[in-house]
Design a protein around this nucleic acid. Sequence first.
RNA 1: GCGCCUGUAGCUCAGUUGGAUAGAGUACCAGUUUCCGAAACUGGGGGUCACAGGUUCGAUUCCUGUCAGGCGCGCCA
Length: 586
Amino acid sequence: MKQALQDLIQQALEAAVVAGDLPEVSLPVPQIDRTKDKSHGDFASNIALMLAKPTKMNPREVAAIIVATLPADSIVEKVDIAGPGFINFTLTADMAQQVVSTVLSQAEAYGNSDMGVGKTANVEFVSANPTGPLHVGHGRGAAYGSVVSSLLSAVGYQVHREYYVNDAGRQMDILATSVWLRYLEACGEKVTFPRNGYKGAYVFDIAATLQATVGNDFQRSAVNVFADIAVDEPAGGDKEKHIDDLTRNAKALLGEENYRQVFDLGLTAILADIKADLEAFGTEYEAWFSERSLMENGAVEQEIERLKAADVLYEKDGAWWFRSTNYGDEKDRVVVRDNGQTTYFASDIAYHLHKFHDNPELVIDVWGSDHHGYIPRVKAGLTASGKNADKLTVLLVQFAVLYRGGEKIAMSTRSGEFVMLRDLVKEIGRDAARFFYVMRSADQHMDFDLDLAKSQSNDNPVYYVQYAHARVCSVFRQLAERGLSWDQAVGETNIGLLTEDHEQSLMTALSRYPEVVLSAAMNYTPHILTNYLVDLARDFHSYYNAHHVIIEDINLSQARLTLIRAVQQVIINGLGIIGVNAPETM
RNA sequence: GCGCCUGUAGCUCAGUUGGAUAGAGUACCAGUUUCCGAAACUGGGGGUCACAGGUUCGAUUCCUGUCAGGCGCGCCA
């Protein structure tokens, strides 16, 4: 619709220039907006205001010229010039009503567009370390990443959702060591658990599984385990060195193969947990990409050799550094530690190169905002490897702060006191959790009110939208109970009877939906979709309260049934993108 | 200290990429069910868009500075 109006203005502009009514200036692309105020018609263009300066003419005068040259068209009822020079378009009633048939014929495809057809998008999100179960901090990324993916899919992209599994590296060693120490405790060894170890309850569970699997075969004397190690932090030492030394001893005492068994047991158990949680949260992936695979197939090593050959690595203090400052980063970064191990960053360059391998149109990373400082170095890595780093879009998600009973819920990874995602889903339900997570701009700090999300009241936007859908279902149940039925053909031929303000508003809202989806997708802003759904639900509830659908006048009744069917369809489509159910009864 | 993000109604947040009189929800006040689900609807008050400059026909939006808050600044991931 916008496009059609845009074309009209474009034609008028060109004609006016040819006729000499407007001077020859570079013509901007006409901008068309929905009006905020109904008295301004349906759409408005500020083209005359934009042209005022270059043409050195009064904007109202320019507007008058454009309107006078505007080609005749069947979709426009009238054109006005208003305010400082806005051109307001009012569409014909026919045009507005057509949307109902469009929605019903396109059904679940209504709202989709083809902007991304033939293009692929690689979206990576969550990618939490498999060192513990997902907590609510990951929930927002999961909801946001999956909704952004669905939006891209709705506008035509072929979307590849990916979870990067950090199954290598020091943190995983710390997990393996933690598991083994808990196992030793269970075997009766006296262990002082390290400050920097993973202290969660799940570590005990994995240790118990280990004991059930191998019995006491992996038991070693605590004296040997704690031999030759740096002092832990509580005793005034370095907790980092302490845990690394414990890991070294674990590897030595267990041997490569047994250590690997402990390591993999932890990894597998936690990864299974994460997968189950995400599935229950309605978040699915095309791929789970293993960091370890990059090391095992030599991709990381190859990349380092390439960078060395390109002379962007140098050796200092026994480590290999990447000259990321050459590419806009604040400081150079280590890729190979002095102990010979590659860093997470080294893997991540290799991983991002892998993402670029099939040359997707979009490469998107969804990260917690605390990782924002990491962006320049990843882009630097890509640039140094000859890739176009601008193609990588990193979307940052701020943490949500949970409130219950008006009180902030304190969370810290240090104390291990964080609310698990699965507990949140258990408490408020998957629908409310997903909706709440995405209903605020992602780059915004967000207060997550658990009481509100849980409440079955009009305060709760999720229920508000779902209730609108359930109400439509209810009308159709009522219809059947009265022995009547819906005749879509009769409804559509009588759609012109829908002249009430509420009906006009609803039809306008329905016609906006594809624009909303497109805009939400292109800007990675799911919250405008949730806002739209709340608005649509409000328009529907108002209408429902003001007018009856099942009435004596058969033709009008059928027209109204047809309208609310279309509303129902759009709610289903919109909630579907968010991953929220549209229940028939509440 | 440096970098990124944020500051809009008592509270939680939108604000269509610079447009017309800055909007919702909530809270508060006042109303609406012999009728398809009241988990709903209608109306009302409530603002120095953090502050100060600048850019222009026009600024909540763009630029600069100040103040306030969050995050980051590791041979962790």
